[in-house]
Design a protein around this nucleic acid. Structure first.
Lengths: 246, 246
DNA sequence: TAGTGGTCTAGACCACATT
DNA sequence: ATGTGGTCTAGACCACTAG
C-alpha cells in the first residue's frame, strides 16, 4: 500500500472542488498558508501542490494577491508534431527520402521580409519527398537562412533529415506553425502520387534560433493517407500526446 | 536589476551544457547533491531546477539511479485547439450558430461499437453551422451518448455551444482527435459555402467522461479560410500555444 | 500594514538502484 | 553499504498587492 504524497491530497481537494462546482473559474482559492494549516503540512508542501496545478493550467497565481481558478479548458487539445522519419520508424515501417532539389536562391522581397534579410541575400532551398514503405507520405519544401546553416548544401538529406541537421547547427528557440487543408499544385500532385480530387494536409512552420529566423518549411501530406492525431488525458495523471500518420 | 533565482542558474547550466554538446542524450547529469554543492545552494533548490527541466521534457529521472538527458525534441510542436465560439469572439468578430438538425438516432453496428453501446441504443445527433461575422466557419456533426447527456435535445444550441453543455453534465476525462484534409460531400459544401475545388480541414474528436464515451464529433472548416496555428517558445521561459482560424 | 506568492535553507526519513 | 531521487519540515526574507 503506497500511500499518496501529502501534496496529492491538496491537489485532489482543489480539483474535486473545481469539478463539483465549489470553485468556479475566476474564484480565489485558499492561500498556501490556509491550505497548509488545513491539511496540517508545511507551506512548501502546499506550494508544491499549487505549483503543479499551475503547470497543468488549472490555476494561475498573482503575486501578492492569490491563486485563482483558470478558465475551463473545455476541450482544449494538444497535437504534438514530431519529425517524419521518427514517425515512420516508430510505426515499424521503412523510411526513405529522395532529394528532388537542393540549391541556393536569392531573396525576393517576400522571402527577404520573412527571414529578416536584405533582398538578394542567399537562401538555401530544398525539396525532398519522404516515403513510408515506398509510398510518398510527405513533400518537404524548405527555405533556410544561409548565414545560419553553413554546410547545408553539402549534406546528404536522404540519410539525415534537414531538421536533424538544423538542430545541430542552430538550436531552436521558437516555432510557429499552421495546419491547413489545401489544393495541391501539379508538382505536389505528382510528387505525392495523389488522386484527381485529393486534397493535401499542409503544415507550414517557421523556426527561429537565438540569432534569427533559421528556416521556413511547407510540409505537404496526402489527404487520404495522412492525418495528425493524438489524445489527452485529464483528471487522472495528466496530459500526454502523440502524433500519427495513417 | 532583478537578479535571477538560484535555480535558474542551475537550469541555465544544464541547458547550455546540452546545447553545447557537453551533455548528450542519455547522459547522466550530476546528482542533486553534487549540483547543490557546486552552486552552493540547498538540495531543494537543485531539486527544483531539475524538476523544471523534467517538466519541459529535457530530462528524465530514475529513482535511486540518477537524472538523464532525454532525447532531443527536434521540432516537436503543440497545437492547442479551443472552442469555436471562444475563438471567434477572441478575434472580436461576431459569433452565431444555426442548428440544422437535432434529434435522436438509434445505433447502427458501427456507432454502437464506437460508443460501447448495444445496437439500437439511442444516440442524439446534432448538426450545427457556426458563423464568424455571417460567414460559415465550421460545420459541426455531433453524436452524443443519450444516457450520459440528459436534456441535450432541449437545449438551444444557437446560444450555448454543445461543448459547453456537455462539459456541465459530463466532465471530460479523455479526448482523442485527428486532423485531416478531406473532400467535402455535397451537404458540407453547401453548408460552408465552399468553392468548387475547395477542400475542408476536418477535426474529428472523441470524448470520454468517467462513465464512458460521451460524444463524437466531426468539425469541418473551409480550407481556404481556416487553419490551426500556434507557436512554441523554447529555452526562454517555456512553451505556450494558441489557436487561430483565418 | 497585513496578506500573498516567490524563493531559499539545512536539515530529515524513505524507497529504490547499484555496487 | 552507499548514493540516488521523492518527499517533507519549520522556519526565513523578499516583492508585490490590497485595504
Amino acid at each position: 500500500m503506497t500511500s499518496k504524497p501529502e501534496y496529492q491530497r491538496i491537489i485532489d481537494f482543489v480539483v474535486s472542488n473545481i469539478e463539483s462546482g465549489g470553485f468556479k473559474a475566476g474564484d480565489k482559492i485558499p492561500s498556501e498558508n490556509e491550505l497548509a494549516q488545513e491539511f496540517d503540512v508545511a507551506r512548501m508542501t502546499a506550494n508544491r501542490a499549487i505549483k503543479e496545478l499551475v503547470h497543468r493550467g488549472v490555476l494561475h497565481r498573482v503575486k501578492g494577491s492569490g491563486s485563482f481558478v483558470s478558465n475551463q479548458h473545455y476541450d482544449q487539445t494538444l497535437v504534438q508534431i514530431s519529425s517524419i522519419s521518427d514517425l515512420v520508424r516508430s510505426k515499424g515501417a521503412h523510411y526513405a527520402a529522395k532529394v528532388m532539389q537542393l540549391d541556393t536562391l536569392y531573396c525576393d522581397p517576400s522571402l527577404a521580409e520573412s527571414f529578416g534579410l536584405a533582398e538578394g541575400s542567399p537562401v538555401y532551398f530544398a525539396e525532398i519527398v519522404h516515403f513510408e514503405d515506398r509510398l510518398p507520405i510527405q513533400l518537404e519544401r524548405r527555405w533556410v537562412n544561409a548565414s545560419l546553416a553553413q554546410g547545408f548544401l553539402d549534406q546528404d538529406f536522404s540519410t539525415k533529415t534537414t531538421t536533424e541537421f538544423l538542430m545541430e547547427v542552430a538550436p531552436l528557440s521558437r516555432v510557429e506553425y499552421r495546419i491547413a487543408a489545401a489544393t495541391p499544385d501539379r508538382e505536389i500532385k505528382a510528387a505525392l502520387d495523389l488522386g484527381e480530387m485529393e486534397p493535401v494536409l499542409r503544415l507550414r512552420r517557421k523556426t527561429w534560433s537565438f540569432s534569427g529566423v533559421v528556416t521556413e518549411v511547407d510540409l505537404y501530406h496526402p489527404g487520404s493517407r495522412f492525418s495528425f492525431s493524438g489524445y489527452n488525458d485529464f483528471s487522472i495523471g495528466d496530459k500526454s500526446g502523440f502524433q500519427q500518420g495513417r
